[in-house]
Amino acid sequence: MKMFAFLPVLLFVLVLGPAAESLAVGISIDAGLTPPQGRWILRTQVRSMSRTAPEGTADAGMDRLMVPLVVVYGLRPQLTLGVRQIIDWRTMTMMGNENKQSGFSDIYVFAKYKILRINTRSYTLGIAPLLGVEAPTGSSGISNEFWSINTGLYFSGRSGGWGADLTLGYRFSGVADVPADDPDPGNELGLNLALAKQIPVGKSGRSALAPVLEISWKNTASDKAAGIETPNSGESVFTLAPGVKYTRGDLIIEGLVRFPVSQDQKGMQMEIGNMYLLGVRHMF
């Protein structure tokens, strides 16, 4: 009966092309912990974000609504596999003209491998590296049209209801199939920290509420053409994101607001605005 109730969701996710992330104290930041063997995690979110031209410059902006669909599976206690597909709606505004595009973004598959997990009465520690590949399967106008490889090293610590996840990620953008007329896209370096406190709700221990704070820094290198940096590309952004997560049994409902604390775009580029996220995870 439970499987039948879940079938529409499973079909929905599989038909759209699956995607990934797992058990973490953060909402958009993954953990250095791998889920139990045989555990499925389905996740979806609604992310609304925008970019606008700096004040006093061009009248331009971009609004973006993204719905990532993620499926994660604990193939072995050490090995987690995942796949992510994003549905993306973009509205570009330039000098009063509006251009809308929508479709599927590039599919992303990844594997995370446990190299350390220490569980004691008073604390838990975990370390897991990640390797992921993004393939240019997306819709025209949405797809990057090239292959990228993501690497990461994830650390987690838990003690007394407190949790911290630290991730260090590096993205090799455009490792293959970059269109001949395009510059080589810049690689990305990211450092993220998620902090949370699990507060039990009720006496059963089956529910918990967790305030979450995510701190992120991401540097995107400039694109290059014939080894020379192209103008108006590359940026560095530091963000803070307070949020809240409610867990009830195998269901997690989460939301956060991410806002830029500082950002530095090279040349003339649109600045990043706030991001609003509402999501749900189900594990079975």
């Binding site: 889920p35 139990p36 529910s207 049994g249 195998d250 594990m283």
Partner: peptide, 18 residues
């Protein structure tokens, strides 16, 4: 049994299933 390493209600189901 005592079990160490669970940190939220979402941890229950995976262990119970196994």
């Amino acid at each position: 049994f005592e079990v160490f390493g669970m940190d939220c209600p979402g941890c229950h189901g995976g262990l119970e299933n196994l």
